[in-house]
Design a protein around this nucleic acid. Structure first.
Lengths: 189, 189
DNA sequence: CCGTTTGTTTAAAACAAATTAAACATTATG
DNA sequence: CATAATGTTTAATTTGTTTTAAACAAACGG
């Protein structure tokens, strides 16, 4: 380690500010701040890092690092990289925030869609059955009809989520939106 | 209360399934399940509900209901409604999932943008200062330059978040995407 | 093989978040 | 104005989540 110069301290402080911003961001989306810092540390590092380096940098246990790294790998916002002659696993942050955004949100939007379509698939037949049950009280049948129709309308929303995922993953929606707005800006000037 | 007929029980079960799906969804996005159930209950109710009704329905304390309802109001995914002759406050769920999506995510994307632009505004001058400090060690200056440039590139991403918010809030992006895909489907058939 | 290094799992502890009941504040009404 | 009804805040409790240290398992190199 080199002696800590003034410039070096300044660098560390700048790093800390960026890291905090990233950790806050993860927090906004319900990701544990420690995991956020883990990502931020990797993001700021120009080299891939090992579990031990992360442990030293963050001052936490190796077990925590192992868990945190796995979460981030699952989210596909960090990657395992290989380097010949290196025994330890190396991790590298996804550096492209657009890719981060896409991995992070499409995964969630898809889960949302699946969870709710599954629920709907189970509930719809029940509502239907009540609607067609002439022995059921009118109020109950009306209620069932109301819900049945409401759910049917909601299907449009899950279709939208599906499109959104596709457009981001394959359709390059992010880039298109940016370009469109660049064009508008030029036009307006 | 009417006697619980078979049809009525069936209705309750269907409701429970839909509610679970919604609560799971909120959970995905880091919102407390109880608050999720609160929203789900209001969503399924054809009438606006009072705190007491929610307390009875969910079997929780009034204090919890008060807190949960405030969170949902802050998120703008439920609304307070007024009815003449009613002393208690009445709450109604946003029924349009598109509107839910827009309220929920644009708020978060904006926070993300603000938090990070704030951090960047603080960190950038520090990196700059190091870059221009001829007394600083080369390795430190290189590192500062590297980060400075990386951050500059990231600004594009926050511009994207901004556009996304605008497009959803004002530009009707959701509807446009749906229509575009409807058209594609017809064309393909 | 054997010892060492590395990463993972686990059970316990520390910590944080949610929940409650009760006190408090506010508002409405007669 | 006094009372009752309603909603909010608070402090204590409960519950759930994170974190750790240590045990364990797997892989590696000699």
């Amino acid at each position: 380690m080199s002696e800590p110069t003034a410039a070096h301290e300044e660098l560390e402080e700048a790093h800390a500010q960026i890291k905090n911003g990233i950790a806050d961001t993860m927090d906004i989306y319900g990701v544990n701040r420690s995991v956020g810092q883990l990502y931020a540390t990797l993001y700021l590092s120009d080299e891939p890092m090992t579990l031990d380096q992360l442990r030293d940098e963050l001052g936490m246990s190796k077990g925590s690092m192992s868990l945190g790294v796995r979460k981030l790998l699952d989210e596909k916002i960090i990657h395992r990289v290989y380097r010949k002659g290196e025994r330890k696993d190396l991790y590298q942050a996804e550096q492209d925030f657009f890719q981060f955004f896409i991995s992070f949100f499409t995964r969630r939007w898809e889960r949302e869609k699946n969870v709710n379509l599954h629920a709907i698939k189970q509930a719809q037949p029940r509502y239907k059955k009540i609607m067609e049950d002439t022995t059921a009280p009118d109020s109950v049948r009306e209620e069932a009809t109301y819900q049945y129709n409401k759910i049917n309308e909601s299907l449009q929303y899950y279709r939208f989520l599906d499109i959104l995922v596709e457009e981001f993953e394959e359709g390059d929606l992010a880039q298109r939106l940016l370009e469109k707005h660049e064009a508008k800006k030029k036009e307006g000037s």
